[in-house]
Nucleic acid binder design. Structure first.
Lengths: 203, 203
DNA sequence: GTCTATAACTCGATAGAC
DNA sequence: GTCTATCGAGTTATAGAC
């Protein structure tokens, strides 16, 4: 039987690694830096996670699945299209307020390795977007909304929720907002974004 | 007098460096990789640009000024607010179609060095956003549009134009679009985005 | 499980011939 | 201007004591 770790060492490593990888990326992160932040040394890091790449993969998978399954739940909920849109913006912005570095981290990694995405992620199931599109098409058929491209609504919603977090430092410099003002700004957007989206698909 | 370079070596280096830095970032880029892409060796690279950091700065400055001055010109043009919005989306998406990696590259760098931005960039002049805001406020005073927050319109416009490029590989995987379909999608958005923005500020 | 010490390696940078 | 060869700093990863 393996000896129990004294303290929550593994946990401390994961927390430290998450911070370092999210702010520096895979290439810029240093094992020494992670060890320091976790209050241990490099050797112990390798004892728990045999290589930098293995450690990174653990962190990335967790980040990716924070970035997504919420989407799934929100999109599959058995409610009206308006409620889906409202629920999505509210929940998603809330999650991003708690994890502001997530989008840039995840999208970066996907951009540098576009190959190992796609087929792996949603295997042969319909993607969240495709299931959203199905709902939109039904509404069009029922003449509840105008004949829009589902892709357009979906990407507009994602864009307006996520982009401000990606451009946050630039935006704060350009607009003069501080942390608090940015937070309030995004709180308001939880209601403003759905209004715009819903307005844009009305008959 | 310095001997003339045989071929456009410096030019070849800049092109290669731009590609490598934009796809890998500062930390992930390799001088060897840049040299290979430029068809030369590392030593010659250092002969032209004495260090990796110097080379990076040249590339970044160019990227940053491609990302911005267009905004200035479009926002300062002496035309109506509607025309400004339409012109911005058309010109900006056109630029991004030619430089699809630009946003992620620039925003990444800004995120990893938020300090050395801001005061440097617009010194004591009003930022593009602030000048846009002035125009919006005038329109509100004239009762031409409803009383919106200028920040909201501006960030929505930027979000919908830029985000699809940042999320491109993910979006292509999720939606099933290929390169051609993505291009067409963005072409349509040059008209669709202004419609949504203008609709959202109408009285 | 945790540490110190060090091996093995990657990569930016330089020396020096042509 | 351009090349080959190599150095040396910085990093990941391992050996081995406790």
């Amino acid at each position: 039987m393996v000896k129990m770790e004294k303290d929550g060492t593994q946990e401390k490593i994961l927390i430290a690694a998450s911070k370092v990888f999210q702010s520096k990326g895979m290439a810029g992160a240093r094992m020494q830096d992670i060890a320091d932040k976790a209050g241990i040394n490099k050797a112990l890091l390798h004892y728990y996670f045999s290589s930098k790449e293995k450690l990174f993969n653990v962190i990335f998978k967790e980040a990716f699945s924070t970035f997504f399954p919420k989407i799934n739940a929100l999109i599959d909920a058995d409610n009206s299209l308006d409620e889906k849109i409202q629920g999505f913006c509210r929940e998603y912005i809330d999650m991003l307020l708690k994890n502001p570095y997530l989008p840039l981290f995840v999208l970066n990694e996907i951009n540098s390795h576009p190959d190992r995405l796609a087929k792996k992620m949603w295997k042969n199931q319909p993607t969240p977007f495709q299931r959203f599109a199905t709902h939109v098409k039904e509404e069009i058929k029922k003449k509840k909304i105008r004949a829009v491209t589902p892709a357009e609504i979906f990407i507009n919603m994602l864009s307006m929720c996520i982009f401000p977090f990606i451009a946050k430092p630039l935006w704060m410099a350009a607009s003069g907002m501080n942390e608090m003002a940015f937070r309030n700004f995004m709180e308001e957007r939880k209601l403003e974004i759905p209004k715009i989206i819903i307005e844009s698909i009305k008959k």
